[in-house]
Nucleic acid binder design. Structure first.
Lengths: 339, 339
DNA sequence: GACAGAATTTGGAACGTTCTAATAAGAGAT
DNA sequence: ATCTCTTATTAGAACGTTCCAAATTCTGTC
């Protein structure tokens, strides 16, 4: 049975402590108006009755539910998981709870979950949106006047309304390509990432700009961003582009897949065939060989986004329309090993 | 600016549609009491005004927030991520939202987030709890009279109050060990998993029982359940237990780490050194060699838990105190390949 | 001991729903 | 036209907070 035992309310507490409900409310809000002695009486009464604060009721009157919505396009990808958990924990630490939803890259589903979050009275939404016809979600957010931030992927142009923050993918593409070049690679391929998406385009732009400077021919194999795609590409590269001696992957999933594909076909990875990933997920350091990767410090990014959004909420400090956080290159054996 | 434009309420809708707020409320609840024609008028008015349902207000009166709390000990582990996402999506599909929190195996943090969830008025909690002094969370749940289910890990003995559901770890341990034996392994080790924890004990029990039948000596190396631990164990096994020709790992993280450790020290994995993982996370099929693993169908499990909890909530159908879901063995090359 | 000003405390309306009990409208039957 | 059902609709009291304006209690001063 879970029939409720009727939770004590602010009024029960007031009665027990011999004060008015208004006073109890003030105590709840840590108001300096209430006398220290009274405060502690009230606190005692709350403890004795096992009082729990009812945010729904509070919200009804003052609307700040302490709920933040987090909408993620692919929560199964460790990159996003790490982002979501670090964000959630940072919010938790500041007294907010997170409603998290995975949209599986489905715009319709995304619109639904955003709608649901609005119903639940979230105070803000942080969204790594799907591509495609994703207008519904943003329209709903706009209509409801809920502060919303785009992260990791800029899929909606209205950055004045929905500010964007993400890693500097372009610079990452540059760094990685320059590194491979420096290591002596002569034919560098770019593998993975769906064509036409900003996240792909930016990385590729970095890659292309560096190649151009050194007058090398690009080899581009866009596609899904999954491990299995990466794995397939090992064979395909060997067959169709045997000259390629280095690969910049769209993300670590692709890179790890490629690594495993190379093991499968018996191709050594290191000095003769270099692989660089993107994102630097935790796992990158644990693969064999350990994966060189563009580090976005996704955990730190999550924390900082939490700060940004709460600042927006609490101090009405709107974030800049576009923020790019710096990236670095973690050089490991996959691009730099005797083989 | 995010100053609200005052959202239309049920009363605005009523005025617009020329009915009373009670009628609008009935429409909202799809009550058969209201005439079809009236219903569509009201619906139109809602659409025109851009009305959004305020669950906080509704909850205040009737207390079913449509919010489910999901507490996870290690959300960065893909096994739990896959569980959480499949559960969340199943809840979403039935009109519930999920408040998800990661506790990072910290009982104090866990108590905090559970408390926060209760404040937010969750209708139920699904918890894969930390070990250790985790009483606080359960006590709070009990006091609040909130239906709560333990999943994946049974850390609280009061299964009458907090029913448990999880995979049949014991059977998994048995299956895997029997498989290795069948393949001709002579010295099978068990690697990973913290000692003394139910989840470890059960798997190990399966392992030990099968070994006993065939009068083989067990080799047990418990420890963390991380990739890096698995990776370290490759070296350690080679040095301290060179006779070992097969390993059953506590989970896939350990197994994948071990796989990468073997690559590191140049030990071939397959017929001469067999590895079996546990959980069958998505990645297991993509490693090289592909990892044999005990499949818990975690995505299916997540969905079924969603069903169980909503059944409890909506139809007052309390789940059995303990449910074990069957496991199967996915045989892949890591235990069965020419090497 | 009265008075002003500061420090505390309080009553009551409001927030947007649900739900009960009561009312109104419609359809047959007399 | 009246009465009885049934079918639709509605008024108004909850729900547990917050917050304003007003009331009360303290302090110190004269």
């Amino acid at each position: 049975m879970h029939d409720v035992v009727r939770r004590p309310t602010i009024i029960d507490v007031a009665k027990k402590a011999g004060v008015s409900k208004s006073t109890v409310s003030l105590v709840l809000q840590n108001s300096p108006l209430v006398r220290a002695e009274t405060r502690s009486h009230v606190r005692e009464a709350m403890a004795e009755l096992g009082y729990v604060y009812n945010r729904a009721a509070a919200n009804l009157r003052s609307s700040n539910a302490g709920l933040i919505g987090l909408v993620i396009n692919d929560l199964r990808n460790p990159f996003f998981t790490q982002f979501a958990t670090s964000l959630q924990m940072a919010l938790s630490a500041r007294g907010y709870a997170a409603v998290i939803a995975n949209t599986d890259e489905d715009p319709t589903l995304q619109a639904q979950v955003v709608e649901a979050m609005i119903e639940h009275g979230v105070s803000a939404v942080i969204i790594s949106s799907t591509y495609g016809e994703n207008g519904g979600a943003f329209e709903a957010l706009g209509r409801a006047g809920i502060p919303a931030m785009q992260v990791l992927r800029k899929t909606n142009a209205h950055v004045e309304t929905f500010p964007f923050a993400g890693p500097d993918y372009l610079e990452g593409g540059r760094l990685a390509t320059a590194h491979l070049l420096e290591q002596g690679a002569k034919h560098i391929a770019f593998v993975g990432g769906l064509q036409g998406r900003d996240v792909t385009r930016e990385r590729m732009e970095g890659y292309l700009s560096v190649l151009q400077e050194s007058e090398l021919e690009p080899v581009v194999l866009t596609g899904r961003s999954s491990r299995s795609f990466g794995r397939e590409m090992a064979r395909r590269l060997e067959k169709e582009h045997p000259e390629v001696d280095a690969v910049l992957c769209f993300n670590d999933q692709v890179a790890l897949g490629l690594l495993s594909g190379c093991a499968e076909i018996g191709r050594r990875v290191g000095r003769t065939f270099r692989i660089v990933g993107f994102d630097d997920i935790e796992e990158a350091a644990e693969s064999w060989p350990p994966l060189t990767s563009v580090r976005c410090d996704i955990a730190g990014f999550g924390q900082s986004i939490a700060g940004t959004v709460l600042d927006w909420l609490e101090n009405d400090k709107m974030p800049a329309p576009e923020t790019r956080t710096p990236v670095t290159l973690m050089v490991r054996d996959s691009s730099n090993r005797d083989s």
